[in-house]
């Protein structure tokens, strides 16, 4: 497995759902503001501003999904894990496997539903995240890193 991997395709669904989640959050804020308006006569323009911000935020979140997906990739070679993201703001990180102290697999409700796992890779001083991988990749990755770490025992 030493070619570049993209995030699982299902991640797009997760991002879309999380955009819907933020839309709901904005609606809740709007509802609260409406209550404030009816009880304490808060001015309506606050609601208008919040509505505008919310609409823009959700649209941006939805629109950048293909971009996010297209420019997010990782690579697990024999010696190092590499994570690369972004095009306009490009960022590329290398973490040699023998510096890795801990690998944590996590899944919030959305990821669980899509049967994905987020991977946190911890070194002695930093934490790097692969946003989502398929369960078998996660397991594989964990095994591989543990095996390699045992080979190259190099304490911090």
């Amino acid at each position: 497995m030493s070619h570049w991997e993209q995030l699982p395709l299902k991640m797009k669904t997760v991002w879309r759902l999380s955009a819907i989640g933020s839309a709901i959050a904005w609606l809740v804020i709007l509802a609260i503001l409406f209550v404030c308006h009816t009880i304490w006569h808060w001015p309506l323009w606050i609601m208008a501003v919040i509505l505008g911000l919310g609409v823009i935020e959700v649209i941006v979140e939805l629109v950048i999904i293909p971009y996010r997906y297209r420019f997010w990739r990782y690579h697990i070679a024999d010696k190092a894990v590499e994570i690369e993201r972004g095009f306009f703001f490009h960022k590329q990180t290398a973490i040699p496997i023998n510096r890795i102290q801990n690998v944590t697999l996590e899944a919030g409700p959305l990821l669980q539903w899509q049967q994905l796992k987020a991977v946190s890779i911890e070194t002695a001083s930093t934490t790097h995240e692969i946003e989502a991988v398929l369960p078998h990749t996660a397991e594989h990755l964990k095994q591989q890193i543990i095996a390699l770490a045992q080979e190259a025992r190099d304490d911090a």
């Binding site: 490009h90 960022k91 973490i95 070194t123 002695a124 001083s125 930093t126």
Partner: peptide, 30 residues
């Protein structure tokens, strides 16, 4: 060195520049 990150914006890329971040452990942090 715990990890190395390269950072560049689109505009830096076309001008041929990048930032390099080197992470070293210090105390209990980074």
């Amino acid at each position: 060195i715990q990890s190395v990150t390269l950072k560049e914006t689109f505009w830096m890329k076309s001008a041929g520049f990048m930032h390099v971040v080197v992470n070293i452990r210090q105390g209990n942090g980074n």
